[in-house]
Amino acid sequence: MAKGKFGGGFGGGMNMQAMMKQAQKMQADMAKAQEEIAQMETEATAGGGAVTVTMTGTNAVKSIVIKPEVVDPDDVDMLQDLVLAAVNEALRAAQEKSSSQMSAITGGMGGLGGGLF
């Protein structure tokens, strides 16, 4: 009597094992994707290439290159604006790449996969 009442709650042991195996595979795939994201680089420019920023997939600024001809001691504000624009664009692009990479693994479940694993 207990078997009929509780035994099939999850569709049997084999289905539970299959679900666990699938969850473990997703966890391994997500760990691999996170490693790939950490190695990814994104580059963005501002001012027609006057300032170039390279950022990693973990949102760390790796380099900032400023062409010498854009350095005007009388217009530091413009240079600051170009650096800011390039950093923000590189950050946006890096986040987009990371999000796309993780969505490919989680099938768009974002919070579910990221929250459980």
Rank of each mutant, 00 (worst) to 15 (best):
D29V: 04
A23E: 08
D81N: 09
A93Q: 15
G12A: 07
G111M: 10
D77T: 14
K25E: 14
A104E: 06
A23H: 08
A28Q: 15
Q101V: 06
A104L: 04
G11T: 06
E35Y: 03
K25M: 11
K67I: 03
E41P: 10
G11A: 08
E89Y: 06
A60H: 15
L116C: 01
L79T: 10
M19L: 13
G115E: 01
G108N: 07
K5H: 05
T45V: 05
G47C: 13
L116R: 11
Q27K: 12
E41S: 13
M26R: 05
L82Q: 06
M78F: 11
R92L: 05
T45L: 08
P68E: 14
P73I: 00
I66T: 00
A38P: 05
R92I: 01
G115K: 04
Q39Y: 01
E96Y: 02
T54Q: 06
M14Q: 08
A104W: 02
S100A: 14
E69Y: 09
M19C: 06
M20E: 12
M102Y: 03
K97E: 09
V83Y: 03
L112K: 15
K97A: 14
V65E: 09
A93N: 14
T56D: 13
M16L: 15
A44S: 14
Q17E: 15
S99F: 00
M20G: 11
E35G: 05
N59V: 00
A28K: 14
L82K: 03
G107I: 02
I105Q: 00
D72P: 10
L79P: 12
G114L: 05
E35P: 07
